[in-house]
Simulated scan of single mutants.
Amino acid sequence: MDVRLEGDGIVLRPWSERDLGQLVTLFDHAEMAYRLPVATPFDLAAAERYLNTARRAEQAGDRIYLAVTSGDDLARGEVMLNLAAGTIGYAIGPAYRGARLASRALRLLTGHAHRVLGLPTVYLEIEADNIASVAVARSGGYRPTGDEPVFVEDKGRRYPLHRWAHTDPEPPAVT
């Protein structure tokens, strides 16, 4: 599934081998390692494994991984859609924050999930203390579901993820 989305001043495109060095730049950071289930340290070998894992998941029809770019094709972050769970994840490299890239990417991928893939509801899973991610969720029209949080464990840290939902404002007409 080769997905490329454009809008609101950004392009979401598939990762490629030319991005391996930039993947290291994005994910080899203490905050990214803390919030994301990625290898630490995140070196070139980890980037190659990540890209291979992403490609296998895409080929299986399980997930879509897209680099977030802004005009010059430089990857500044990532958005990912888990097709089975209907969940989106996003991460913008620390050096590229402040330009609303995550909000714009989230809105673009959410629209694609609703209109092209036919998902009536799309979800996010966010740690309550991740204020920046909560702000991105709100800007994308997501709302807390009120469900009990799901606890996950990664790198020896156990933490709750709270579920947020976005329902398609224009569901398909029933005929």
Results as ranks from 00 to 15, higher is better:
48 E>F: 07
3 V>A: 09
42 F>K: 10
54 A>G: 02
66 L>R: 01
49 R>F: 10
173 A>H: 14
58 E>H: 12
144 P>T: 01
52 N>A: 15
82 N>F: 00
52 N>M: 09
134 V>C: 05
157 R>P: 02
4 R>W: 04
170 E>L: 09
83 L>T: 04
175 T>V: 10
137 A>H: 02
163 R>A: 03
97 R>L: 06
163 R>K: 15
31 E>I: 06
51 L>D: 08
31 E>D: 15
174 V>I: 08
14 P>C: 02
141 G>D: 05
20 L>H: 05
6 E>S: 14
159 Y>L: 09
44 L>A: 12
165 A>E: 14
80 M>T: 11
64 I>C: 01
38 V>G: 06
145 T>A: 05
78 E>C: 15
109 L>V: 06
16 S>W: 14
116 V>I: 09
52 N>V: 12
148 E>R: 13
145 T>F: 12
155 K>S: 03
57 A>F: 07
140 G>S: 06
102 A>W: 00
118 G>Q: 12
160 P>V: 09
39 A>S: 12
107 R>P: 02
151 F>D: 08
7 G>C: 02
61 G>F: 12
43 D>S: 02
2 D>G: 10
25 T>S: 15
58 E>M: 11
58 E>C: 02
158 R>E: 15
18 R>K: 15
119 L>Y: 12
31 E>A: 15
140 G>F: 05
44 L>P: 02
6 E>C: 05
112 H>G: 00
127 E>D: 07
119 L>V: 06
43 D>G: 03
156 G>F: 06
94 P>V: 14
175 T>N: 07
95 A>H: 04
172 P>D: 11
46 A>R: 03
59 Q>K: 11
152 V>S: 15
46 A>M: 10
170 E>F: 10
69 T>D: 13
47 A>K: 08
61 G>E: 08
109 L>Y: 00
92 I>G: 02
62 D>S: 06
132 A>T: 08
131 I>V: 13
77 G>W: 08
77 G>N: 06
165 A>S: 15
76 R>Y: 01
3 V>T: 13
55 R>H: 14
126 I>K: 08
48 E>K: 12
